Computed example of a mutant assay.
Amino acid sequence: MISIKLTKILPFLPVLLFFFSCASKPKDERIVSVSILPQQYFVEQIAGDYVKINVMVPPGMNPATSDLNTEQLKKLLDSDICFAVGYLPFETVHLYPVLEGKKKPVLIRHSDTLELIAGDCQHASAHVQHPQASVDPHVWMSPRYALMMSREIYEVLAETYPEKQAVFRANYERLEKRIKQLAQQAEQELAGKTQRTFLIYHPALTYFARDYGLEQISIEEEGKEPDPRHLKKIVDIVREKKIPLIFIQNQFDVNNANSVAAETGVQIIPIDPLSPDWMAEMENLIRILKEKLN
């Protein structure tokens, strides 16, 4: 499969778009594009198999470095809807330039309706200058925001495919109930913890930590590999606060997390914020925090 760097071929984009428009999709095919796998979960729960889902950051890829390939680009341009998170670097660098000025697919940016937190992971500002480039983009890791995203997905799907509105509504209400139960579970199981600090390599749990009164400390320093000074500071914090665990993600290098663990004895635990099974991943996260925080 050919991978294309859209930032390098923007001058030729009109030719590519014309080429793809000539190879039209089947008339009865309904395609919805999403940026990441957790969004696929929400769309699947609501729409079932009524739509085909084009995930633009595939399994194992990092939204900070992922690119569009030609097949994804064609599916994107054939889509009725594109659900973007908002400020992932993949979106700001590759997705938005392609969709600029186009009426279809309809672009929905979840972050536009959410109250965002300033972030130091520099997801967006590492690539582009944007008035809100320093926001933390990991909104889907908050059950409260996931519920709002799911509601938005339902409303847009129902408007786009009104013939299935009743089905979508019933499916959404089931998903809504499960997410509310998950949020209540997190509230109950984390409320009594006296130890409320955890370490993480890449700060993907900012909104989750805010929702449940936890403190997230990142090994990453402003979206970059930590230098020795920062690593020493992290080691000192772990010892001072008696932090029991480090979360790591498989999209990032774990060498520095291993160094901190070797120095302090803290336990390393993998999580996957980009899991295709959002509900199972969130349940796993809550279970780990319940077990490891005192």
Rank of each mutant, 00 (worst) to 15 (best):
E155M: 12
E152Q: 12
A186T: 04
R178A: 01
L175P: 01
E189G: 03
E159M: 12
A170Y: 15
Q181M: 07
A158C: 07
L190C: 10
A170D: 10
A158W: 06
R151Y: 12
L175S: 01
Y154V: 01
A158G: 06
A183Q: 13
A166D: 15
V156P: 09
N171A: 00
A158L: 05
E155P: 05
E187W: 08
A170V: 11
E152I: 03
A166F: 13
R169G: 04
A166R: 15
E189D: 10
I179D: 00
R151L: 11
K180L: 13
E173S: 05
E159P: 03
M149W: 02
E163P: 08
L182F: 06
A166E: 15
I179T: 00
L190E: 06
R169C: 04
A183S: 14
E176L: 04
A158F: 09
R151P: 03
E176Q: 12
L157M: 05
R169A: 08
S150Q: 06
Q185D: 08
R151D: 11
Y172A: 01
I153V: 14
R151C: 10
A158I: 04
R174E: 10
R151N: 03
E152H: 06
P162T: 04
A183Y: 09
I153E: 03
E189S: 14
Q185S: 07
Y154E: 10
K180H: 09
I179H: 02
E187G: 04
Y172I: 01
K177W: 08
Q188H: 13
Q184M: 02
N171W: 01
Q165T: 15
Y154R: 13
N171D: 01
Y172N: 02
E176M: 05
P162F: 07
E152L: 09
I153T: 12
V167P: 07
K177S: 07
V156M: 10
V167Q: 13
E155I: 07
V156N: 13
N171Q: 09
E163M: 08
R169F: 10
Y172S: 00
E159D: 15
L157S: 05
R169P: 00
Q184G: 06
R178K: 12
M149E: 14
P162E: 09
A186W: 01
A166W: 14
Y161K: 11
I153C: 01
E152P: 02
R169W: 11
R151I: 00
E189N: 07
Y161M: 03
R169H: 11
Q181P: 04
F168E: 07
K180D: 06
E155A: 14
E187N: 11
L175D: 00
A158E: 09
I179S: 00
V167L: 15
E173Y: 10
S150W: 00
K164F: 13
E189F: 08
V156R: 14
I153Y: 03
E152C: 03
A186S: 11
N171Y: 02
K180V: 06
N171V: 03
R151M: 11
Q185H: 13
S150V: 03
E163N: 12
R169K: 15
E163H: 12
V156Q: 14
V167C: 08
I179F: 02
R174Q: 08
E152V: 07
M149P: 02
E163C: 08
A183E: 14
L157A: 04
A158D: 07
I153H: 01
K177E: 10
K164Q: 14
Q185I: 06
P162L: 05
